[in-house]
């Protein structure tokens, strides 16, 4: 059950060389409901809906694997570092507790 979500992969610095270590951040628009909050109008609990796991993979090889719980803020950001190793593709796969699976990828082109 895939749903369209706005997401973004940012790499800093924008221009990088082969073998360089760069900062990678991934952002998603997601409600991250904990399941303990009440709707103010209907006074009923809002069901839990949060991201379960996030995987960063580079050319099919997994580099970072995260297990996520409810305590992350709405529209979460995940920032780590990554070593550039030739041309390729960075793919981020994220799963929801309701079974929603999504993917976002970005091409990587080192210069020089």
């Amino acid at each position: 059950m895939a749903q369209k979500r706005k997401s973004l992969i940012k790499i800093k610095p924008k221009k990088f060389k082969d073998g360089e270590v760069v900062k990678v951040s991934f952002m998603v628009m997601h409600p991250m409901d904990t399941g303990t909050r009440k709707d103010k109008k209907t006074k009923q609990l809002i069901p839990a809906k949060f991201i379960n796991s996030v995987k960063f993979s580079y050319n099919g090889k997994e580099i970072t694997n995260m297990t996520v719980w409810e305590a992350l803020s709405t529209n979460p950001v995940f920032t780590t570092y990554m070593k550039i190793n030739g041309k390729g593709k960075l793919t981020v796969t994220y799963t929801d507790n309701t079974g929603e699976v999504n993917e976002k990828s970005k091409k990587i082109k080192p210069k020089g």
């Binding site: 270590v21 904990t34 303990t36 580079y58 090889k61 997994e62 580099i63 970072t64 694997n65 995260m66 297990t67 996520v68 719980w69 409810e70 305590a71 992350l72 803020s73 979460p76 950001v77 995940f78 920032t79 780590t80 570092y81 990554m82 070593k83 190793n85």
Partner: peptide, 26 residues
């Protein structure tokens, strides 16, 4: 927090640098 765990990040040598940052709810 009622669930003390916020996030578990499993890193590999391919990361190059051991750093992680997010935003959490307290």
């Amino acid at each position: 927090n009622f669930n003390a765990r916020c996030i578990d990040v499993h890193l590999t040598p391919a990361n190059g640098k051991a750093m992680f940052s997010t935003r959490i709810k307290l």
